[in-house]
């Protein structure tokens, strides 16, 4: 079982130099062939989690453990981490317009990534780039490779971004809100592509704030609230029967697309606490409708059912 875990974050804690904890306690697993959806409200720490895995947060102090293919990443020299970045693990970003360098053709930027990690000639790199773009469903990939980012539509840009991320055959693909800047019909295209990538055996970590996107593309989900993972489990089970009160509230707040129209949508009162003002006990306590005295001690993320973990006193035996 453990052998196939690709990425394992264990009590990952990230703080500013002044001691403010941005990530309090993030634990999650991604296995090969799995897609883990990381959901949560804006500012909950989704992107920070992704960036720490990539080792792109110099200046922030990380503790805990990040294991990738059985190897501890925290404390790794930047030179070694760099060898992993782009080759062992790759990342795509929310806005493919700004994520590409505007002044170079996308082909050149993909070639660059290939040549950063492998000793191949320019010609070979370009051939691979074109093949990749074609596989990502970019029409006329040879011409597309010569275009500049602003000359492509948002959907094609994101395909090119994914092609670049996959160019060195990474075992883990991290996608930070890859469809937020896209239209729904284009989003559907990109999500379909991500599903294919997952089925081809790579591990995927998909960061989003859209539960629908998670349901559609992921096998597992981790819910982040104010720098902590509060629930993790298989998507179908969590969607059908969310355990943590926050997950429940999050799912209820989505307006339904069929069935009767509710008079008012259930809402969550208040807003997430800022990183420097987290409550002592359960971080969700100020907004939780089930809050009770023993919530004043912060509950740990525990396995309560086969494959399902939750951090809430309601499920303490």
């Amino acid at each position: 079982m453990e052998a196939e875990v690709l990425l394992k974050l264990h009590h990952l804690h990230l703080e500013l130099s002044n001691g403010t904890a941005l990530l309090e306690d993030v634990s999650l697993n991604v296995r090969r062939g799995d897609a883990l959806g990381v959901v949560g409200e804006s500012g909950s720490g989704k992107s920070l989690t992704a960036m720490s895995v990539m080792g792109l947060l110099p200046g922030l102090r990380a503790s805990g453990s990040i294991r990738f293919e059985g190897r501890e990443l925290l404390g790794l020299k930047d030179r070694e981490w760099r060898r992993l970045r782009g080759a062992g693990m790759a990342m795509i970003f929310q806005d493919p317009m700004t994520a590409f360098l505007p002044v170079r053709s996308i082909g050149a930027q993909i070639d660059e990534q290939i040549r950063l990690h492998e000793r191949v000639s320019r010609r070979e790199a370009r051939a691979r780039t074109v093949a990749l773009l074609g596989r990502m469903g970019v029409p006329d990939p040879e011409a597309a490779a010569k275009r500049y980012p602003h000359q492509l539509s948002g959907g094609l840009r994101q395909r090119a971004m994914i092609a670049m991320a996959l160019s060195c055959g990474p075992a883990l693909l991290i996608a930070d809100e890859p469809t937020t800047a896209l239209d729904v019909t284009v989003q559907a295209q990109i999500l379909t592509l991500l599903c294919e990538i997952r089925d081809s055996g790579a591990g995927v970590m998909l960061i989003t704030h859209d539960m629908g996107v998670v349901a559609q593309t992921c096998t597992h989900v981790a819910v982040v609230y104010s720098g902590l993972v509060v629930e993790q489990g298989p998507v179908a089970a969590v969607m059908a029967r969310p355990l943590h009160p926050y997950t429940q509230a999050l799912l209820e707040a989505i307006p339904p697309l069929d069935g009767p129209r509710p008079d008012a949508l259930p809402t969550i009162p208040g807003r997430p606490s800022a990183p420097d003002a987290r409550p002592e006990g359960c971080v969700f306590a100020p907004r939780c409708r089930f809050v009770r005295p023993d919530c004043a001690v912060r509950p740990a993320l525990r396995e309560v059912e086969e494959g399902r973990r939750v951090a809430c006193v309601l499920y303490d035996a």
Partner: peptide, 16 residues
Amino acid sequence: AVPRPDRPLPPPLKGD
């Protein structure tokens, strides 16, 4: 194209 828990994604529209 709206992603929903209750069904797999139907084949998306092609193109932009």
